[in-house]
């Protein structure tokens, strides 16, 4: 029945249930305490975002700060909640390909429209 291993449909699920392998991959996931800590930071950053958006900072600076805060939140969720910080680098490579690709391509599209000119 060894050959059965060659089938993987939904079997990530089955395959990963090997205790030794899973144990190795799993115990490096953050603890519940750490998750809660990240959650609290996310809430604080969001509150900060809202507060900043009501402030009367110059327009350019305001946008810069808001994007920076969003980026930090984005990073926290991706790195901790989605475990990219702890997981195999190949997952990150896939995701970065999509994320960076999207950022670059669509920035060029907006540039073609001179969307930031005025």
């Amino acid at each position: 029945m060894r050959q059965l291993d060659e089938f993987h449909e939904e079997a990530g699920a089955r395959g990963m249930s090997d205790p030794s392998e899973v144990g190795h991959a799993r115990h490096i996931h953050p603890s519940a305490k750490e998750y809660v800590r990240i959650g609290v930071i996310l809430v604080i950053l969001t509150a900060l975002e809202v507060w900043v958006s009501y402030s009367s900072l110059p327009h350019g600076l305001l946008i810069g700060i808001l994007f920076f805060l969003a980026f930090v939140k984005f990073g926290l969720v991706v790195l901790w909640f989605m475990h990219l910080r702890f997981d195999d680098a190949r997952y990150s490579r896939f995701f970065i390909m999509g994320f960076a690709g999207a950022c670059i391509l669509f920035l060029v599209v907006l540039l073609l429209f001179k969307a930031f000119a005025g």
Partner: peptide, 23 residues
């Protein structure tokens, strides 16, 4: 349960999920 024998050692479903999210 057998260990899933994949070329990369990574579960296929998870690779597929990340590729989907990239998309």
């Amino acid at each position: 349960a057998p260990v899933e024998h994949t070329s990369t050692g990574l579960p296929s479903t998870k690779l597929a999920m990340w590729l989907f999210l990239a998309s």
